[in-house]
Amino acid sequence: MTSDAAIEAIDVARTYALDGVSVPALRGVSLSIGHGEHVALVGPSGSGKSTLMHLLGGLDQPTSGRLRIGGRDVAGLTAAEMAHLRNATIGFVFQSFHLLSRTSALDNVALPLVYRGMGARERRERAAQMLERVGLGHRIGHRPNQLSGGEQQRVAIARALVTEPVVLLADEPTGNLDQATGAAVLELLEQLNTAEGVAVVLVTHDREVAARARRQITMRDGRIVADTAVVDRTASAGAPDAARADHAGPAGGHGTPTDAGEDRR
């Protein structure tokens, strides 16, 4: 494992206690997300994808195992320290957007900066730039209910990126969007991934979407069952399984994205 990875998990487990019964959601997961990576996280419902995303984003603490976010071991961190770590290193995009409904797009995007103690003027400047960046420069005064679903999710992406995080975690970001809108949002994420160098980890049920990532992690029953680098993205779009190099087991290291067949549309 490289210590300069953005996020590093070693044999991480998470067990929920439900009415006295312990429900293992993650049973020993090891992986490393490198800077600037584009990773798709797939697997059947209930396999632990969201649980893993919460851990990677510092929203939750593992029951056992080691977890380093932005080079920092999360073991023993207080809630306040975790909050600071999230603010500094992670950007979240949620399936249901999670925008403040009474607040303008601009102030929604500026919200994470509030918790950095940044002044209002600078916050708004940065938020406006970020909205411009996601193509919503003309919508800064709009409230969420005055925006389409795709626009709302783009506001959420701007909010996730305004802090210049190391990793952007998106749990089914297109789950509430129609095909075309979803595709546009994904394209935006890919574009930001290449242009800004922010690592993107994306949970999806859509094979086509997964195939666009340069690395694909498959989960089942709380374990990683496959961690593959996608060799040829053009080919994979039509036949997802065709061009995959399976080379990782449940406890394996991350697949290094190869430059082979790197073909951006």
């Binding site: 306040a80 600071h84 999230r86 999670h98 994470p112 918790y115 802090t163």
Partner: peptide
């Protein structure tokens, strides 16, 4: 509660 969760995800500390 959802708003609180969101603010926390974005970096709000319990005391904020």
């Amino acid at each position: 509660t959802r708003e609180i969760g969101l603010r926390m995800a974005l970096g709000a500390r319990p005391r904020d």
